[in-house]
Design a protein around this nucleic acid. Structure first.
Lengths: 165, 165
DNA sequence: TATTGTTATACTCTATAACTATA
DNA sequence: TATAGTTATAGAGTATAACAATA
């Protein structure tokens, strides 16, 4: 009845379960990563929902807006989703006229996903909302710490070596 | 057909999707957090599966082993799961005689979850496997960086202030 | 009247296989 | 023969509501 998506900031300082922080799991990086991610994800989903999006569709839209003209296969590989899930995501965005499928000139089997003008507009406002809501969560860290965290996560996430600011 | 759980280390340096790292999403802390977590989770699940566990059940078992004698309600609160999900997790662990439900003396409505001897043994070997597999993932960071990361994640995960080593 | 554990149910997400059209 | 996109389906995970026993 109170689930991950709900009442995060509103929680009144969780009663008796707080003592479980004395447990060994909380010294486990994977556990903390999962927990931090759950909080961040819930926040991001709530923010994206304001614009009729979920993090998944928001992310696909963000990539479409970037003008990298990814094929669905590339999206699947990059987001580590099955190609069939990309179909559903692109279907949904396309039905709302936020993206278009264009035939890849160099391979007639492949579709390239591009944002429409409306998609760009939606992304712009969604991005503002999402970024804003994340600031609230990552405010637990200083600007310098956030930079350090990003650099570490990039390595854990398997990003290629170039740093990018 | 290639999904998160599969072929992580085995992946042959992902072909054309690598260029999508030039996209703006990869400068998004939440995105990187989600991606790092997906990798870590897949690894941990694979390791736990060796002992017939998933991260969820492994975590519950870890807490049971800690002798903090949590009620199911406390587990639900701490793990941010619905109480009904805890029922299923404890049912499964109890059917395998890894944990026991004991009546809480101070509240006859509540059950307290405790590990059996077999549960302790299973946890010990599962913990070794899981910790080992995680070392592989977090090897991308130095020991010092791992400490820094843990401290940051603890704050993001909403841990109480005391540091704990 | 509120809370703990439980059951039931609907819904979303994830995983897998098979088909088509191109290469 | 292999690959891109698609469809279908089954299973796991998540969300919600209601009930019995106890507070």
């Amino acid at each position: 009845m109170l689930n991950p998506t709900e009442s995060l900031a509103t929680a009144p300082m969780l009663s008796g379960s707080e003592r479980l922080w004395a447990t060994s799991v909380v010294r486990d990086l994977a556990f903390l990563l999962a927990r931090a991610n759950a909080l961040s994800l819930a926040q991001a989903n709530a923010a994206a929902a304001t614009h009729g999006l979920k993090v998944r569709s928001y992310t696909v839209l963000a990539i479409a807006v970037s003008d990298t003209r990814p094929t669905q296969r590339e999206l699947a590989e990059f987001l580590r989703l099955d190609p069939s899930q990309i179909v559903a995501l692109v279907d949904e965005l396309e039905s709302r006229a936020l993206v278009r499928r264009e035939p890849d000139p160099s391979d007639r089997r492949a579709n390239v996903v591009v944002a429409t003008d409306e998609g760009r507009a939606t992304y712009a406002s969604a991005h503002a909302t999402v970024a804003d809501s994340e600031r609230a969560i990552f405010a637990a860290l200083s600007a310098e710490e956030r930079t350090t965290l990003m650099e570490m996560l990039r390595r854990l996430a398997g990003a290629p070596d170039a740093l990018s600011a």
